[in-house]
Design a protein around this nucleic acid. Structure first.
Lengths: 182, 182
DNA sequence: TGATGCATGTAATCCGTTACATGATTCA
DNA sequence: TGAATCATGTAACGGATTACATGCATCA
């Protein structure tokens, strides 16, 4: 085992209890978003399975008009399983970039396609950076543990470097930036 | 379509002809290694399939003692397919990091585990950086097209930033570095 | 003599995404 | 009125990894 949907859910549930829907939101919008994904199709079955194995408990919260919200909480067995998962030496980071693939083969593209790809990359990175800065500012209280600070710092540093490279290579990106800020 | 094993193979074969084995090596050791992987289990079937579709031609090179080496070359149809693949707006970069997951949950680990994970990350990044620098120095001729320079520059910049962050957070890494250089 | 590199392939299996199915509430 | 959010789940499908199967050459 190591980093599959199960371990991910256990990890979040070790911080706070949550429903499947809330876990998805946390994964998409929280700290995790920069280095993991997961979809409902993998989260819900993982949760059901882990409850059956005694790693989680479920509590159904009634709601008007909606299906009951199933709030999951981690058990002692769950914490043990998580600890075992974390004890595994982490696998090397995996980075997949269609953007860099396109850049490497840029001689096969025309200038517009290259510029478009670069703009898109720049926009994506800018959005990432924005999310980090907002997390730091907005919920300063929630993110003041050493783990969150480390991860945000790492992310900020890497994203800024990438952005800096793109802007150094393509001066026209800076113009767009100013335009966007107007 | 966009970035699957097929497009990847077409991309490399658009630069030079190669066998499945050589493609794997190129993916593991060349420019691509920083942002893609692929295993034999996906490369060989992709190659067979694309030959059948007329995107590639095969030429068997006899060799003593080994199975014939099957050298694949891209056809016009293959170049067209590749162009179509590249025309798709690239998907957002995907970054998966068990390292950052562990760092985020570092309160569940003891100091040795955290330090080990950080050292490993530092070593991995150092290796990546070394590969980039070596590629630049060693085969200066092969990597002087704009695409390679862009990708190497981007990689170098990001990896150095990550390394810088780790070293700023953990001064003891610098000691190790000096030790390693002795 | 044993590991590593060269060389190709297949099959089982895993893991995950996408799409489907359902349905009320709220906001523009 | 239509889109988005809240809320849970299943099933089909895809894509890739892993392990298996084979076997000679070379280097330490």
């Amino acid at each position: 085992m190591a980093m599959n949907t199960r371990t991910l859910c256990l990890g979040i549930l070790s911080l706070k209890e949550a429903s499947g829907y809330e876990l998805k939101k946390e994964i998409e919008e929280g700290m995790f978003r920069h280095f993991i994904d997961a979809s409902f199709g993998s989260i819900y079955p993982a949760l059901t399975q882990m409850s059956a194995e005694g790693l989680l408990t479920v509590r159904a919260e009634e709601q008007s008009g909606r299906p009951d919200k199933k709030v999951y909480a981690i058990t002692e067995a769950g914490r043990a399983a998580l600890a075992k998962g974390l004890a595994v030496i982490p696998a090397r980071d995996k980075y997949k970039s269609e953007f860099l693939f396109e850049m490497l083969l840029q001689h096969l593209l025309n200038k517009e396609q290259v510029d478009l790809a670069i703009s898109k990359q720049h926009a994506d990175l800018t959005e990432d950076l924005g999310a980090i800065m907002e997390a730091r500012a907005h919920k300063g209280g929630e993110c003041n543990d050493p783990g969150s600070r480390f991860v945000m710092g790492y992310g900020e540093c890497v994203v800024r470097a990438a952005l800096g490279f793109l802007e150094a290579q393509c001066p026209w990106l800076r113009k767009n930036k100013i335009k966007a800020a107007e």
